[in-house]
Simulated assay, not measured.
Amino acid sequence: MKKITILLFCFLSFLGFSQSKTTGVINLNANMTANFTLNNATSKVTLVLKGPSDRWFGLGLGISSGFNMSAGDALVYSTSLTDRNFVGFQAPINDTQDWTTMSNSIASGIRTLTLERNLTTSDGANDLQMPYASTSSIRLSWTRSNAASNSLSSNHLVGFATGTFTDVLSVQDFSLNASSIYPNPSSGEFYIKTKTNLSRVNVYNQTGGLVKTIIVAADSREVKVEVNGIQSGVYFLELQNDSEKSWKKVIFN
């Protein structure tokens, strides 16, 4: 079972890295911002929403200037977060709570909410659906009270914004996933070059058997590996440091 698990993990790793894309910080007004990140691996969307800590504020999803207020997805924070929908010109009514509050903090008069939801939800008629492959941008409306108050009222500001999603590359670029193996194919001697620290290398054959372990001195970023007398074929390298693991394939000829 252990060998099967190792091989399955290797196979999935070679299919591609987990994907994510983000809007980056979208400035709504002087004290409100939103940042959406879509994660293809977890099928989750993370929203970091910032607003004033002394009054209610809200965010409309998938909504642009001139929208019809008879329907629409909305989030409102007063004394707590509520998932809502626009209905006519009254205050948005409560909807099924699809967002999970991961954190809620206040600093220098600004509340920061980190929220998470599935990319697509079962109550699709009420929620903006964000399938990873087809979501390239998001239209937003925002609102907040004109005065310090947690009671929703018509005394508020409103505006509109649009965010564009771009692929998240920086984390992968400087992780063990970005490591390179050369020469590959190899005769049994090759180098591993990384963009982060490398502390250990395990070499496995195709059946999951451990062939060799290399302890890397001083967390080097370039390591020479020699595996003498090895049979020709495909092997898998498990790269490790203190915080992550990555798998690479090497061919010996």
Rank of each mutant, 00 (worst) to 15 (best):
R200M: 09
C10S: 11
T37V: 12
S175Y: 06
L210Y: 09
L210E: 08
M130A: 02
K195I: 01
Q231A: 15
S175H: 07
Y235C: 07
F236K: 06
K224H: 12
D242I: 04
E226L: 15
Y132F: 14
R84W: 02
S105C: 07
A178N: 07
K212I: 00
T100K: 12
T162M: 10
L210D: 09
E116G: 03
L15S: 13
G51H: 09
S199Y: 01
W142D: 06
T33I: 02
V48Q: 10
K2C: 10
S154N: 13
Y204Q: 04
P92F: 03
N35D: 12
V201Y: 00
L152Q: 11
D95R: 14
L157W: 08
F86N: 08
G163M: 05
T194W: 01
D173S: 15
S18T: 11
S170R: 13
N39I: 01
G233K: 10
E238Y: 01
S20I: 04
G163D: 01
T46W: 01
T33Q: 12
K212V: 05
D173K: 15
Q129W: 03
N155L: 10
M102R: 10
Y132H: 00
L113R: 10
L81Y: 01
F252D: 02
V158A: 14
N184W: 10
D127V: 11
K195L: 15
K212S: 13
S105Y: 06
I192R: 10
S243E: 12
L237H: 07
D167H: 07
V211P: 02
E226I: 14
I106P: 02
K248S: 07
I215N: 15
N228T: 09
S243A: 12
S70Y: 01
S154C: 04
E189R: 15
M130Q: 04
W247Q: 07
S78C: 04
S53H: 09
F86G: 05
N94M: 09
N29A: 10
T23R: 02
T33P: 03
S149N: 10
S170T: 09
T5E: 15
N150A: 12
K248N: 07
V216Q: 03
K50P: 03
P92S: 11
R200G: 00
F86L: 08
S136K: 13
K249D: 05
V234P: 01
